[in-house]
Amino acid sequence: MKKQQIGLFKIIKHSFFWIAVSVMMMIGSIVLFVVNARLSIEFTGGIDLTINELNNEENLVSALKDGLTAQGFNQPQINIEKEGTNTSLLVSLPFENDEQVKEVSSGVNQILLNQGFISSPDAIVGLSLNGPSVSSYMKSGAINAIIVGLILISIYIMFSFASVRKHISPLVLGGVTILTMLFDTSIALGAYGLWMAFNSTVTVDTIFIISILTIMGYSINDTIIILDRIRENIARQSDSLDKGTVLYGQLVEDSIWQTMRRSLGTGVTTLLVTLTMFIFGTDMLQKFAFTIAIGIIAGTYSSLFFASPMTYIFLNKWKKELKKL
C-alpha cells in the first residue's frame, strides 16, 4: 500500500502524545484559574464608586477595612484603580441581603468624608450598587447561556455529520467538538487567571463571560473546518476504506494538512484584529480582546493537534494502523 505524505511531519502517528500534552495544558490552565479566580461585584455583590480628586490615597484601603470592620462588616475586599483624575473604588463583601449593600455604601461615604479622603459628597461622580439578588441573577444567566450553547452545538453536530455515520458516529464527532471547545476555553481561563494573579483590578465579570461564549463559537467554527474535511474525505473514499486500501489514519492526516493553511490564516488574521483592540482599547475592551486572543491561539492549535488525533482515536482503528502510518 503506497502512502502519500503531504505534510511536513506526521501528526496522527503521534496522536497519544498530542492528546497527553493537551490534557496537561488543560489541567494546568484550570488550576491557574481556580487558584487566582476573583469574581467582580456583578457576581459577589458590592459597591463601585468613581471618585474625583481623591486625597491621601495611600491610606484609603487600610482606613476602609478598619472602618467597615468596626461597623460589623468583616473581611471587606477593597480594590483601587486610577483613571486620570478619577479613582475607581471597588468594595465587595459576602452580603446576605440587598439592605446590607446600602448600609455599606453609607458607611463608605462616611469614612471618605470624615477622614478627609474627599472634600464633599460631590466628589463621588459615579456609584453602582450590586446586591445578592442581582448577583444571583447574573450567575444563573451566565450558567444557562453556556449550557444552552453546549446543547445547541451538540444537536448541530449530530445532524451535520449524519451522512458519514457508516464510518464514524455523529455522537463521536459531537463529543470531539465539545471536548475541543472545553480545551479552548480552559486555556483562556488559565491565561486570564494568570493575568488576575498579577493585576488585582482584573476580575471575572460579564465581559469575561461574553468572551468565553465567543471563544466557544469560534472554537466550534475552527473544529468544524477540519471535521468537515474529514467528512468529505470519508465520503469520497468510502469504498477504499471498506476495502482497506486507504488507512483511516492517513485520511485524517491528509485532512489536517489540507486545511492547515486555512486554519492558520484564519487564526492569524483574527489574532491581529484582537491585538489591535488590546493595544488601543480601554479597560473592558482590553479584557475582551485578551481573552479572545488566547482563545484564538488555543482554537488554532486544538483543531489541528487535539481534535484530529482525538477523532482518530475514537474511530478505534489505531490498534491496527499506527504501525503502518
Rank of each mutant, 00 (worst) to 15 (best):
Q250C: 02
N52C: 10
N79W: 07
T69L: 05
S135A: 15
E253P: 11
A235Y: 15
L171A: 12
N114A: 14
S186H: 01
I168Y: 09
N55G: 09
G217S: 05
K13N: 12
V176G: 01
S29D: 06
V172C: 00
L194N: 04
I118Y: 08
Q250M: 05
R231M: 04
G141I: 10
I226Y: 08
A162P: 00
R229M: 03
G267T: 13
F73W: 08
I51W: 00
S211E: 09
A188F: 04
G141Y: 10
F33A: 03
P309Q: 03
G131Q: 06
G84V: 13
V134L: 11
E81N: 15
A20W: 11
Q115R: 12
V204S: 01
F17V: 14
I296L: 10
Q75N: 14
L247M: 08
V204Q: 01
R231W: 04
G45D: 06
I230E: 08
Q5K: 15
G126T: 03
K320F: 12
L315F: 15
P309T: 04
G174N: 02
G46F: 00
F33C: 00
E83Y: 11
A145Q: 01
I78H: 11
I215F: 01
L49M: 11
D66P: 09
T87Y: 11
N36I: 01
F161Y: 14
Q75L: 12
G46Y: 03
V31A: 14
K65T: 10
I124C: 08
V176R: 07
F161P: 00
I168S: 04
K2C: 04
I297P: 06
N199W: 01
L152Y: 08
S62H: 09
S105R: 12
I6Y: 09
T201W: 04
M310E: 06
K324Q: 14
M260Y: 12
I215Q: 02
I212S: 00
L325K: 04
V273D: 05
I30D: 00
S128M: 09
E232A: 10
E232D: 10
N59M: 11
G190P: 13
N109P: 00
I210Q: 08
T177M: 07
F305S: 02
E253S: 03
S211M: 05
F280P: 02
K82N: 15
M310T: 13
T266F: 09
L322T: 07
I313R: 03
R231S: 06
G107D: 03
P121F: 07
T276Y: 12
F306W: 12
